[in-house]
Structures are given as C-alpha cells and as structure tokens.
Design a protein around this nucleic acid. Structure first.
Length: 808
DNA sequence: GAGCACTGC
C-alpha cells in the first residue's frame, strides 16, 4: 500500500543509492546531495556501521558512561545523595532539592555563608580547581566552545559553572544539562551550598536553581540552572536561540543520549550563526565528558562554516591544553588525537580524575555459562579476600540476577562458621524502591554484601563500598530494527568502554579488583565504544523535534553520528502517516501540536484524535496515554499463589475489550479513591509509585491540552459514563496513532499484522491472552524469542480498514 | 503460557 507514497517520500524502494530524499512534492525525488563534502569522511563510517548492524547483528551498545556524575568528587560527603539516586518519586526529589532549607523557612544568611566557607577547602582540593584560570582564559577570547574531559571525581560538574559566573561575557544565566533528574537536583543543591545561596524558588535572591519535568525551581536571580536534557530541548522549542543564556554547559556527553545529540546539534548551529541570530551577544558552549571521543567532538565543533582556518593555541598552556590527550590517561579511552590541527574556536582541557587502581583478571577459556562462572568467582573472592570489600556482579537482567541470587544463597548455607557471612542483594530497575534501598544499608558485622545488578549500577546507581567487580561481559539492549519496524531486546556483548566503566566501579573507595568473565582476546575483540542511542532507536520523535525547531531538511541537521538512511526514511514515513508532515515534507499543524506534547509522536497523535469533534474522549485517552508513558502499573508477582490472588483482586478492573480500557478503569478507580490510595494500590497489586507518576503525567497532559486549545478549561472535570459507543470511540483513537500496529486473526488462531503480514503473538501479560478476537491494535511490539504484542485491545476489522484506507 | 536493560519531556 504505501509503496506509492513511499516512493514519493523517500525514493524508490529498490533504489539503494547513496542518498536520502526528504519528503518532497516533486514527483520524482531529486537526488539530493546528502550533505556538504566535509561530512564525507564521517558518512563512510556510518555506512559501515549501518551495514555491520544489518548483517551481523552481533555488535552491541548501550549508553556507556563513566561515573555517576552526580557530585563528582564529593559524593562521599553526601551520604543521603546515594539513596536519592535510586528514587524517582517527585516527593523524594523535592526533599532532596530542598534539604538545606528546612520546612521552607528562610535560612539565615550567615549560616549559608558559613557553610559555603567550610566547603571551600574541599573544593580547592578537587582536581579541576587548578584549571579555573585557564578555563576562564580560554573562553574569554574568541573561543566559543570548550571541551572538558574529566575523569571520575574531577569536580567538573559542580565547579566549572562557578568558574564562569563572574566572567565579563557572562551577563545572563548558565545552563548545565544533565541526563538524569536526580543528578540535576542534587547538583543544584550542592552548588547552592557551595555558593552560600538559597536554592531555587525558595528565595528571590537564589542564584542556583534547577528545572526538571514536573518541578522547576528557579528565582528571578537564578544564574546557574541545572536542567535535564529534555527540559532544555523544550525550552529550545519556544526560544530556539536561547537568548536568556550566556553559556550552556553540556555535561555527561559521553553517555550520548539522543537528547544530548540533539542539543549538541542545535548548539552547533547557534554558535556558528551567533552573529546573525543573537546579535553581538555570544553564546559560550562547554562540552563535558568523562571518556571523550574527543576527536569526533573537536571536528564536530571546529567544522562550522565560518571557522577560520588556523589559530594559535595551546602552545603556552602545557600538555593539558591541546588537541592531544595528556599522557597518563587510562588505557582504552580512545586517545588518538590530531596533534597538528590548531583550533580557532575551540579548546580542550583534560583533567585527571581520582580513581584508585583496579587489578584486572580474565578467564583463560571462554565460558558458556556466566551465571555459573560468576558463582565460582563470588565464592573465590569471598574466601580469599579479607573484609571490608563488597562484591558487585554485573548481569544482564532480572532473570539472571534471580538465578544467581538463588545459587549464591544455596551455597552460602554451607559457609563455615568462622568465615564471614554473605548477604545477597538484587538490584534492577523493576525492583520496588524499598528493596533497592537495601544496597545502601550497612550489612551486619562480619559479613560481605554481594550486589547482583543489571546495567543500572553502571551509571544510574553508585553503590558504595564495592572493591570487587565481577563482569559477565554482556548487556541486554534495545535495538530498533528498521526492516521490521520493531524493537528487539537482545543480550549482546558489551563494548570496551562499558567494560572499563564497570571495572571502575571497584576503585571508588580503595584499590580494587575486577574479574571479567571472558578472555583477554574477547576483550580485544569488543567494539571500542557503545553505539550511540541515535544509531539504534526509532527516530520519529527526534526528527519531529528537529523539524519543529525550524530545520526543514533533516539532512542539514549536524548529527554527531549520522543515523543510517533506513532509519531516517522510516521515521519520515511514520511521521507522514501520522499526519505530522505535509506532502512537501514540512511540518504540519498536527505535527507542531504533537511536538509540543511530552509524548512519542504516536501517543501525541492519539491525543489529537481524541480531541476531535466526532471522537470527543480526551479525558479518557489522557488517562490511558499517561499509563502507557510510565512504567508498568501492574506489579509482577513471583509466586503462583500471589498471581491468583492478584487476578481476583483485579477482576473488577479487567475489561474484555483489552488492556487499554483496563488501564483506564484502573486510573479511574484509583483516582476516585479519596481516602488511602496507597492501600488501594496494595489491595489491587498495583504499583503506587507508578500510579503517582500516572497522576503527574495526567495533570501535565490536561494542562498542555488546554494550552494547545484541544479542549475547554474545565472539561476534564466531566466524567462520562462508560458505554459501548464510548469504548468504541476510545479504541478508534488508538487506531489513529497505531494503525501500523494492527493484526487480524487467522483461522489457525494466530495473528498476522495487516501491514507487513508478520506473525505476532499476544503477550501473556495481556488480558486478551488466549482470546480469539477478529482484530487487535497494540501500543507496543517487542521481539524477544518471538514477536509479542503488548498492551493489546480488541477492535473491529472494519475500523482498521477505515483507518488504513484513509491514511494511504 | 512469557519473562523488559536504562533514561527523559
């Protein structure tokens, strides 16, 4: 069906020449030059990666990143921070952010100043401190961009913004981006303490604030604002040139989230066009990274059109200031530099971190069973190495964590009385909060903790007291497959940078050891870096954001790593089918409105459909969409007994139409509970934390829908009676966003997608599991061992036909 | 009759 549209949008399907063609009204897609010639070298690399990806599918990646980044160099002084790192609840974040201001009372100025003075000596001890003058000097001249490469504990996140604050060019605000919300809040709190100023909105004189979803805390005097990447992108949507900022510091760039890639692209455009767009006022950009692909970043920022050919730099600044990495950086950090290239607009600063040495051990032979191997290693360490020193084991998922937990506990029963005890602690994101907290608690005397963790311990959570790391060398990661248009979740080998990051977790408190459950040869054969997320995800959201910020031709967007052509094509087509793009490829009114919503384009489209006159079910759809945009609200249960109990407790919520109306019934029931929602959640085996998030999202979406003019003020108070017609309208809204996620029943009882004719199975977690209905729509499609549809609803085949007919 | 790593607006 969309063959004709496809051809118009992106060229002939069989025409695999080297080009990407934007949606265009021209009948024949013109062969557009993909990008200026200077991108030639980079493009080759992407093509290679693209091919490798499609052909072998064995390479891997995930956001790799050294350090928790939350308070480099100071985390030991802030034990409470560690706990907050695992929390996602807003209340906790709030408390965290306001820890210095008890109960909202205005703090005494003197006490703040005293505290600030007492912190000064520890600040001066940070490795970054001696670079303060140099950093200022570099940005004072014609340099607009500074790269800071700082290893763990260098103090760059807290100190660099303070170094710049009183510079003559810095009249406005400094934004410091963070990938995680907790980091933004805790860094803001720390910097406010160091500066002796109240935090955020607590006082009009406050100089340090933060901005995260659901919680922005700034004052009229805010000069330093810690902000999540997503929030800065939202600000850029309103004000593409960021006029209120004198500087943007982009932290944790090595993690290479999609958001950070977009931010870097927009900043690069602003910097190179700054005269024209911002008048005489310049915008300084500081890019901070732990393990930098410095070469790529330098070329990226140095490559802008008006950069002068040659500059003088670095000659008198010593070895830390140049295009060449200073000696003594850790192995494996991609140290190749381009020494003969001098930069006009750009300088680089290398700062050594504080990390204890970690001794490496490899297997002599590869293992088939890393759980078994990890078990051996844990007991070997436990018997051989004296206390203190906890063990952190990196595994792939909940299944392997629980398997090893059972094994360790079983063998631990046989530990002799005169040997210390072992305390096993699982750690993964789906684990309830209280259980996660246990890894931060002190364990009984004469015992050793064994933390069995997923990738969550690689960046998001820093476990104190670890001196031994056992690394299985694998990671479970999501990969978007363009051919099939679906996500797969597969276990893959980690990258070298990821292995180094895991190893570093043993050297935070004292010298440590890392046991890699693979051979040294295996290590050498690992990919150097993890593929950045932008190369392995669905790009429709990113491309819509780019278009919404006024970049008409997405090929003009300076991607640090250019995504494969197939991904770009796919995303453009998807946006077109959603109605977010016009026939000429420009963003449509629908697209503009979708881009304003904090949702994926598909969910945004469902919202818009629900606001239309004939559907008119926005209230209900918002509840459903809110559920789909947070973690699973239904607790997964371990035992058969619990499962049966949960099934009967949830019976009143289950709807025969499917999972979406079940979610709606759950939200409606939860929100009508006025006395004790926590207890209600426990009774129905529903995650209270997830439901709190649902209510936050619901509130935000309601407000934004009003602002977008999708509904009248107060309409949300109206609760319509459930009815057949109502249910039908709701399901038809879902079809508007998920037309491609539809399947019909075959005589043999299996389902085949209407587009693509692929077999899908209803996931066993669905209320429709095992049911036979003529057609289904699903909001999630995941390939693990087979293709599964999750969050499934029953629809009429005729509705699907209507939607498919109208969109092609 | 399966089993999902991790962020974020």
């Amino acid at each position: 069906m969309p063959e004709k549209v496809y051809t118009r949008l992106v060229g002939d399907r069989d025409d695999r020449t080297d080009r990407i063609v934007e949606p265009n009204t021209n009948k024949a897609p013109a062969a557009q030059p993909p990008h200026p010639s200077k991108w030639g070298v980079k493009r080759k690399r992407h093509e290679k990666e693209d091919r490798a990806l499609r052909v072998e599918e064995t390479r891997t990646s995930t956001g790799t990143k050294p350090k928790d980044g939350t308070l480099a160099g100071n985390s030991a002084a802030l034990p409470s921070l560690q706990r907050d790192v695992t929390s996602s609840s807003r209340e906790r974040l709030r408390r965290n952010g306001r820890a210095t201001i008890p109960d909202g009372q205005a703090p005494k100025r003197g006490s703040l100043k005293e505290k600030s003075l007492s912190l000064l000596s520890s600040r001066k001890a940070l490795p970054i401190w001696v670079y303060a003058d140099e950093i200022r000097k570099q940005l004072r001249g014609s340099k607009d961009v500074l790269l800071v490469v700082g290893e763990t504990g260098s103090g760059k996140s807290t100190q660099v913004p303070q170094f710049l604050l009183d510079e003559p060019w810095c009249g406005g605000c400094i934004a410091v981006t963070q990938p995680r919300r907790v980091a933004a809040v805790s860094l803001a709190r720390r910097v406010a303490e160091e500066m002796g100023t109240p935090l955020g909105s607590s006082s009009p004189a406050s100089k340090v604030g933060y901005s995260i979803r659901f919680d922005t805390s700034v004052s009229p005097s805010t000069r330093i604002k810690f902000i999540t990447e997503g929030m800065l992108l939202q600000e850029m949507l309103r004000d593409p040139t960021l006029p209120q900022y004198s500087a943007v510091i982009v932290d944790e760039v090595h993690e290479r989230s999609v958001n950070v890639d977009l931010i870097l692209g927009f900043l690069r455009n602003i910097v190179s066009k700054r005269q024209a767009v911002r008048g005489s006022r310049s915008l300084k950009v500081v890019v901070m990274s732990a393990t930098a692909d410095v070469q790529g970043l330098m070329e990226y920022f140095d490559d802008h059109p008006d950069a002068a050919a040659v500059g003088t730099e670095a000659q008198d600044h010593g070895s830390s200031w140049s295009g060449l990495p200073a000696s003594g950086r850790s192995a494996g950090q991609n140290g190749e530099g381009k020494s003969d290239h001098l930069h006009e607009r750009l300088s680089v600063c290398y700062v050594k971190g504080r990390q204890f040495p970690v001794k490496l051990h490899y297997l002599s032979e590869p293992t088939q069973d890393f759980v078994e191997e990890a078990l051996k290693r844990v007991f070997q360490i436990h018997y051989k190495e004296p206390l203190p020193g906890d063990i952190l084991v990196f595994l792939t998922g909940q299944d392997t964590v629980e398997a090893l937990e059972a094994l360790v506990n079983e063998y631990a029963l046989g530990i002799e009385a005169d040997v210390p005890k072992l305390v096993t602690l699982p750690l993964f994101a789906a684990l309830p909060q209280a259980a996660q907290q246990k890894v931060f608690e002190r364990c009984p005397p004469n015992s050793r903790k064994v933390i069995l963790a997923t990738n969550i311990a690689e960046t998001s959570v820093t476990v104190p007291g670890v001196r031994f790391v056992v690394d299985c060398g694998k990671v479970k990661l999501k990969q978007f497959r363009n051919r099939l248009g679906l996500d797969s979740l597969l276990v893959k080998p980690i990258s070298q940078s990821s292995a180094i990051q895991r190893q570093g977790r043993a050297g935070r408190d004292a010298p440590g050891q890392c046991f890699r459950l693979f051979t040294e040869d295996d290590y050498r054969n690992l990919q150097k870096r993890t593929n950045p997320e932008i190369l392995r995800c669905d790009l429709s959201d990113a491309l819509l954001k780019i278009k919404a910020r006024g970049v008409q031709n997405v090929l003009e967007f300076p991607f640090l790593d250019k995504p494969p052509r197939e991904s770009l094509e796919n995303a453009l087509l998807q946006l077109y089918h959603l109605g977010a793009l016009n026939d000429d490829g420009s963003i449509s009114d629908v697209g503009v409105r979708i881009s304003r919503l904090p949702l994926s384009p598909t969910l945004g489209r469902v919202i818009l459909e629900a606001s239309s006159e004939d559907k008119d079910c926005l209230v209900e759809i918002i509840d459903i969409v809110a559920c789909l945009s947070v973690e699973n609200i239904f607790l997964s249960l371990a035992t058969e007994e619990k499962k049966e109990e949960a099934e009967s407790a949830r019976r009143e919520l289950m709807k025969r139409e499917g999972d979406h109306l079940t979610l709606l019934a759950t939200v409606q029931s939860y929100s009508s509970e006025q006395t004790d929602r926590k207890q209600w959640s426990a009774r129905h085996f529903v995650s209270h934390r997830a439901m709190q998030n649902v209510m936050d999202v619901r509130k935000q979406l309601r407000k934004q829908c009003e602002q977008l003019g999708l509904c009248d003020t107060g309409i949300m108070l109206r609760q319509s009676e459930a009815s057949e017609e109502r249910s039908a309208a709701i399901l038809r809204c879902l079809l508007a966003g998920f037309a491609s996620n539809t399947a019909r029943l075959l005589p043999d009882g299996s389902f085949k997608t209407l587009l693509g004719n692929q077999t899908v199975a209803i996931h066993p977690s669905s209320v429709l599991f095992g049911k036979k209905v003529e057609a289904i729509v699903f909001s999630e499609f995941v390939y693990t061992n087979r293709s599964y549809a999750r969050n499934v609803s029953s629809v009429k085949l005729s509705w699907v036909d209507d939607v498919l007919a109208s969109s092609s």
